[in-house]
Amino acid sequence: MDQPVVEIRAISKHFGEGPTRVDALREVSLSVDPGTVVGLRGPSGSGKSTLLNVIGCILEPNSGTMRLNGELVYDGKWLRRDLRALRLEKIGFIFQAHNLLPFLNAWENVAVARILAGAPLAQARGRALDLLSYFGIERRKDAMPGQLSGGEAQRIAIARALANDPRIILADEPTAALDSERAATVMDLLRRVATERQTAVIVVTHDEKIFDRFDHIFSLRDGRLEAPSRIAA
């Protein structure tokens, strides 16, 4: 069995102190293996976004440990100073509203992640075009975000998330703005990425239509993780 790509142990996070203290995560432990697609669900305020921010190294927890792709990155404190570089190397993000940069066209939106990681423009462009081709949207490479449909924009956002070959993809409600058909297409793409690239995909979602697309679904309630449900065979 491969080593988990995401491994968190007893992670806690609270906001405020005293009477205003809110425990967003209470000793949450979670492992995600490579090649799996995992769903995170729960009511509003249950801690889903906090957990996603912690795994994405955007939010510092208060206690616990976290390993990403085998590297211990948090043990009571961040063990790496360059968390942005860590995100660039290891994590790809997919957003609910695709968050494409409005001033870059499709291929530039994909290439920008590669360029930020230090790749030369020509190489970044080549990689971006490969990814657009992989997702079947290379003909839209010069389109600006405003000219793309919701489904096309989300596919480009997924391509951007893969630009640096990350081992982890964190997706925040990636199908919320899409109809059922396009939502299914996006989930198929994420499944394909997980399988073919051995990437761990963690999806925060409320969308019951796609629950059957996950290998496991974790439920969060009041900052506590409930036992995972195995969905897919």
Binding site: R84, R87, L88, V112
Partner: peptide, 9 residues
């Protein structure tokens, strides 16, 4: 915010 999240220094 997106650039920062992706990892832009």
């Amino acid at each position: 915010a997106t650039l920062k999240l992706i990892g832009a220094p």
